[in-house]
Amino acid sequence: MALPAISPYPMPGEADLPRNKVSWTPDPKRAVLLIHDMQNYFLNAFTPGQSPVTELLANIQRLKQHCAALGIPVVYSAQPGGQTPEQRGLQLDLWGPGINGGPHQKQIVDALAPGENDILLTKWRYSAFIKTGLLELLRERGRDQLIITGIYAHIGCLQTASHAFMHDVQAFLVADALGDFSLENHQMALNYAARLCAVTTTTQRVIDELRPATAQGEQPLSRQQVREDVAELLLQGPSEIGDDENLLERGLDSIRIMSLVERWRRTGAEISFVELAERPTLTDWYALLSSSARGVTATSQGQSHRPS
């Protein structure tokens, strides 16, 4: 009933992501980063210094630093040691007594030690929402997005994403910031989440999307950024999409268009769903975004020169 020894396997990356059914975008004002069960007890099952654990630690570190810099709350879940049979519940039948009563196994790994401003939740079941106060914490802070990292992908991380969905919290399962028993289990978690309860994504994509809103009067989105944002949602290479190709016929549905509207509005663009849907080409969209930026600039300049 002990944890299995985990053989090295390649960490999934951008090319391994399943197609997401929804197109949510993480927002610095709405998100919380969850570092799930990164304790010595669970990490000891991996082969040190090899994939996936090397990428797992490095990518969670990157996300934590980025979220902290943006003021995004960082929450840790950690199971207690020395649980009684009553506390352990049915997990005792499947996994045995779990973490012992000593200080080492229950510790968060040194590479990810919580900072003084981080939040630590004691976790009792697979899902980080059960008996922890996580949902109440999100609601108190006005947050409705959860970026999920840690271990194990197909057990606690997936269950947490599923519970998030059932509480109307948008979950983001960061594929290359998760660890699992095997690549098969890891990929199964991603496939399930993408179909039924979450967005699967990567560390770099989350960092890119969690960019602060652009100040008024700054330069508009570049043509290349517009192309890359569209290509990302279509799961295609940027070079595969023609400038004047009808993006609706290419498979860009209304949910994905709304995701783009939300994303581009955060950069200061004044655009609407109707405008994008009526002129669904990269050429037209870049023209819309450029004119929107010029309009914002002109308005800002007019206000700044208005006599008091």
Rank of each mutant, 00 (worst) to 15 (best):
P307G: 12
G102W: 04
R266V: 00
L173P: 01
P73C: 12
D176V: 03
E228V: 02
C197Y: 01
C67M: 09
V32T: 02
W285S: 08
T299M: 13
V199D: 00
L134F: 10
P48Y: 07
F129L: 10
R19L: 12
S291H: 12
E228R: 00
A128H: 05
H154D: 13
Q91G: 08
P8V: 11
L276G: 07
T299R: 09
R250G: 01
L135W: 11
V230S: 02
Q39M: 11
L248H: 14
L221R: 09
A113L: 14
C197V: 04
F172T: 07
F46E: 05
P114I: 01
S239A: 15
E232L: 08
I151F: 03
G156Q: 00
S127Y: 01
G142K: 12
P28Q: 08
V274R: 13
T200Y: 05
Q65Y: 03
T122W: 04
Q83A: 09
I130S: 11
A293P: 02
S23A: 15
A231W: 00
L135Q: 11
R88E: 09
D144P: 09
A194F: 01
D144A: 07
G101C: 09
T25I: 13
Q145W: 03
G89F: 05
V230A: 03
N44T: 08
C197I: 02
S291G: 06
L234K: 00
P4G: 11
M166A: 12
S272L: 04
E55D: 15
F42A: 05
L248W: 06
W285Y: 12
L178T: 02
S222H: 11
E232Q: 12
T132D: 05
R227H: 08
A287S: 13
R19W: 01
V199E: 00
D208E: 15
A189W: 09
R294S: 15
R263V: 01
A193P: 05
G237Y: 04
L57K: 11
Y152C: 03
N40L: 11
T25N: 06
T47I: 14
L178A: 03
E86N: 09
A287N: 08
Y192H: 13
H154G: 03
G82T: 12
E218W: 04
L190S: 12
F273E: 13
A68S: 09
A111W: 06
S308A: 12
L94S: 14
R125D: 09
T54N: 06
A161T: 01
R143Q: 10
E55L: 07
